[in-house]
């Protein structure tokens, strides 16, 4: 699976991505390794912990989400991860993952587990389209072949959100 984050993301967007299960704790550490921190938080203790974390260390992995939350709470105290601002960040991250699905990069369950988190956190936003129904009975063992309907629904969601599906050229 291609890393979703390229390091340019604001830490608040990374937190939102983690909260909706679009990324893992390893992705948080990967992001910190690539990110050029602003002066405001470059020396933050939790940010430094993330930068120094080894993604192959299970203990460090387990702490990554907590470090990120502490960083946000200290450096962005007004940020509410359930706000409209956060919802827009979630939408952007989610659409990025949907495009990856169309590029055969992630499994159906990876999309669908994000859906339930988004529904609950952002109160069933309209931009989820019909994924609520399309994700019924999708679990970790569900193959892309079994979920052939999901691609069509995802294309529709991307179109409804004003995004053009990107297909891998090679």
């Amino acid at each position: 699976m291609t890393p979703l984050l390229d390091g340019s993301e604001d830490p608040r967007k990374v937190l939102v991505a983690r909260e909706i299960e679009a990324i893992s704790n390893a992705d948080i550490i990967g992001w910190a390794g690539l990110h050029a921190a602003s002066l405001g938080y470059a020396d933050d203790l939790n940010y430094q912990q993330l930068v120094r974390s080894n993604p192959r260390n299970a203990v460090a992995l387990g702490k990554a989400h907590g470090h990120l939350k502490s960083l946000i709470a200290r450096q962005f105290p007004d940020f509410n991860d359930r706000s409209q601002q956060a919802s827009e960040m979630a939408r952007e991250v989610f659409l990025r993952r949907l495009r990856e699905y169309l590029q055969d990069d992630i499994a159906p369950f990876h999309v669908c587990r994000m859906v339930s988190h988004i529904e609950q956190t952002y109160e069933y936003p309209h931009w989820l389209g019909d994924l609520y129904n399309a994700c019924d009975w999708m679990d970790e063992r569900t193959t892309r072949e079994q979920a052939s309907h999901l691609g069509d629904v995802i294309k529709q969601v991307i179109a409804d959100n004003g995004e053009i599906p990107v297909h891998r050229s090679n």
């Binding site: 299960e21 299970a58 203990v59 387990g62 369950f109 669908c112 587990r113 859906v115 339930s116 988190h117 529904e119 019924d136 009975w137 999708m138 679990d139 970790e140």
Partner: peptide, 17 residues
């Protein structure tokens, strides 16, 4: 379990209503 280092392949997620 996660805090104890147990690797989950997927965290708790809604699968069916």
């Amino acid at each position: 379990a996660k805090a104890s280092g147990v690797p989950f392949t997927a965290p708790p997620s809604l699968v069916h209503r």
